[in-house]
Amino acid sequence: MLWDWSYAFEILPILAQASLVTVQATLLGFVLALILGLVFALLRMARAPWIALPVSAFVEFIRSTPLLIQIFFLYFVFPEFGVSLDAFTAGVIALGLHYGTYCAEVYRAGLDNVPRGQWEASTALNLSPFHTFRDIIIPQAIPPVVPALGNYFVALFKETPLLSAIAVLELMQQAKILGSTTFRYIEPITLVGLFFLVFSLVAAALIRMVERRLNRIGAR
């Protein structure tokens, strides 16, 4: 018998515990990505080229290099500058930064889709740039791009196993440890795969639901 049910049930609670770390990293990373993404998107819109150009360059750089190396970079290089991050923090920051650059593009699409007249109206009403953004532009720019942001949420979730490379005790790392102690890899790794599949499918269904609800609000 290749698949050992009793072993699978034995390791299930251990993996469930580790999955909490995975979920934590996902949520924290995504909150960071949402914030950083908005910052990048707004800075890229800046009229002064000495702001917009370096930010664009930075975003392009992060987008075209592997997340794994960025995780290593944060974890191994930052201590040289006197900033020691523990593995979990380094991993979350790397995830947030990497996906922040993806979210920036999504936000930009949303911001570009706000009609010009809205900006002109805000100027006519003598609103400050801050109020224009907070009360006029952002509320119109964000809802249409929520589904796209949701896709990146699922994508970020699926990247969390990379944290196992710097020994964060998340799902994949726990599975590897279980595998190396018992020499049975089939159950832990398959269970991890199943966990990701179920979570992704549920998340995709949720995103579709949110999308439908937002469309209904938009139509009203």
Partner: peptide
């Protein structure tokens, strides 16, 4: 299946589980 799970999990699955 391949869009729903992590690339790393797929890699490990092929690497560790297929030999079994």
């Amino acid at each position: 299946l391949f869009r729903g799970t992590s690339a790393l999990v797929q890699l490990f699955w092929l690497f560790f589980v297929l030999p079994l």
